[in-house]
Design a protein around this nucleic acid. Structure first.
Lengths: 335, 335
DNA sequence: TTGAAAGCGCTAACAC
DNA sequence: GTGTTAGCGCTTTCAA
């Protein structure tokens, strides 16, 4: 007999069975200190009344909301949405809900987002973005909740994070080209000053240059491209710089460069080779298909979320800065 | 002097100023029944103590969480992530936070998601997905909170929704081809039984067929393609069916068909013309670029969220079933 | 204009 | 095992 009054409370259940709140609370929370017979009666009443615990009240009383905040640049960017997909799946697995905020990679919006999320009493936070301003960093620390960075790094490396070894990956790709005799290797980055671009990607590129005894030519470094269109326009600059190979940090941008080059009559890979870095679907739809570094995007998010659950459970992390393996996928945009 | 004890409560503020909780609550909530001098003192103390209201406590007391639930199939699908971007931006504008859940378009997961969101006492819900099972529908109604469908329809059309006129759009595209003399027009859908596919897209296609006196040929209707890969494989079927034009419901799928066709030596648009329907970046990166119906994706989300805010404020909706305008974008995948 | 007091629905000692 | 009793931090009558 499903009676299902709407919004039954724990009081209703207690009254129906003739026990106290505490007992109902115990069975709801799976405490073992309840006589089986009592438990069954309570369970029956719960089902009968359609009782579902009010998470808000629970959150107030227990100081746990089973909700995590996720701060990300832009969910329409495939790289970030795949990371977030990994986060979301693991969060669900551990019974957490996700409060999502887009920041467009703007530190001001990130700051508001973090504070706002803190007001909602989140149990933990995942932060993504190509930059983490000091202000945002201290706001995060002020919340007092555990945090994990996913696909992001802070200059000081004080926060736990999950990434691939960007420096090594960019070193390898660059070196690969240099060894094959490329003398005009261009590098396309999102910014000229952010940690992930400067400390890692560019550092790897420069290291390769040094290893092979080449001189850094600033005219071969392109920054500020964020979208497919940006990449397409940048192709003109790539041609002007007489680049013979391009390493790009983002798939949409790389695809823009590829199409921009071809639309201007440049053959890929014959005249210019291109390698991208995220290996999203965009690399597959390109013609020729784009060679790419393959980051385990979903896994970066999933691992980050898993680490966060440990932190929220006050467990120790065996490693604070996790680097996941990456691979190189050879397709037809390179010889 | 910013003192900033951590986690000051409303009590701390009241004590610091020497007023009651009620007064602090009034100034925090912008009630006008506070003497300016008092208000200023309270404000100063709030700033001084770094006081920020605990949203959970507030939610319990006021029965409003300023949080909306968003249920979507998959955030890595550009169509849905752009809708959600519109939702998120408007939600922020109205000071709501977004609890996001991916369902993979699975009714079972949608059901759990809705119930779970209800437990968190959301103030409203936006639902996206190509299907809305009866079970999910009644779970939604059982929550008692306002709902708006975005880019989705329910068979009964009982819920408010925001869409484009899919039937008309598919009618127009189909008729365009038929008028040009195409006799083998293929239709690619996501499913063979869901409302949005059957009642709208396919209905528009069939209507066009009738208008031009053509007989429906089931072998020209393809269903079940969800991804780029699916589309690529489907290309073989398109060739086998001797289709001379294709209308596809999704960009990634359309791009898969396009590349699958070309990889098999079929020229587009000379031998087969293709039109897609979502006009995401995927249509631009294609070679040739894909002609497409252009749905105002961001706006669909934004308008849906705006409608939801009205519903949450107990305002009336002038229109329950909103149809936003669409356009046709001609590119080089059609003659 | 301000304060007192009663909840909101639940958890968590602490008794029994 | 089970009940009692305080809260959690805030909003909201109702009085004053």
């Amino acid at each position: 007999m499903v009676d299902e009054k709407k919004n039954a409370t724990i009081y209703d259940v207690a009254a129906a069975v003739g026990v106290s709140l505490a007992t109902v609370s115990r069975v709801v929370n799976g405490s073992d200190n309840v006589r089986p017979a009592t438990r069954d009666k309570v369970l029956a009443a719960i089902k009968d009344l359609g009782y579902r615990p009010n998470a808000v009240a629970r959150g107030l009383a227990s100081k746990k909301t089973t909700t995590v905040g996720v701060v990300m640049p832009d969910m329409t960017n495939l790289f970030y949405s795949e990371l977030t997909r990994g986060i979301d799946d693991v969060a669900n697995m551990y019974q957490y809900d996700v409060l999502l905020t887009n920041t467009d990679d703007d530190p001001k919006r990130a700051l508001t987002a973090v504070k706002n999320l803190a007001d909602k009493q989140i149990d933990g936070l995942i932060f993504m973005g190509s930059q983490l301003s000091d202000e945002v960093l201290s706001a995060i620390q002020a919340t007092g909740v555990p945090v994990v960075l996913a696909g992001s790094v802070d200059h000081g490396r004080v926060l736990p994070s999950v990434n691939i070894d960007y420096q090594k990956a960019f070193f390898e790709v660059s070196q690969h080209f240099l060894k094959k005799g490329q003398e005009r290797l261009a590098l396309v980055l999102g910014s000229k000053d952010r940690a992930i671009d400067v400390d890692y990607r560019r550092a790897g590129y420069e290291e390769a240059l040094q290893t092979s005894g080449q001189i850094l030519d600033e005219s071969l470094i392109f920054t500020g491209a964020r979208s497919y269109q940006d990449g397409q326009e940048m192709a003109a600059g790539v041609i002007a710089a007489k680049a013979s190979a391009v390493v790009a940090y983002d798939d949409e941008v790389a695809l823009g460069v590829l199409n921009g080059l071809q639309d201007r009559g440049v053959n890929v890979p014959e005249e210019v080779e291109i390698v991208s870095a995220n290996n999203t679907t965009f690399t597959l739809v390109a013609r020729p298909e784009l060679s790419s570094i393959d980051q385990p995007k979903y896994d970066i998010g999933a691992v980050a979320m898993r680490m966060l659950t440990k932190l929220m459970d006050h467990e120790n992390l065996s490693e604070k800065q996790v680097l996941l393996p990456y691979t190189m996928v050879k397709r037809n945009s390179t010889k």
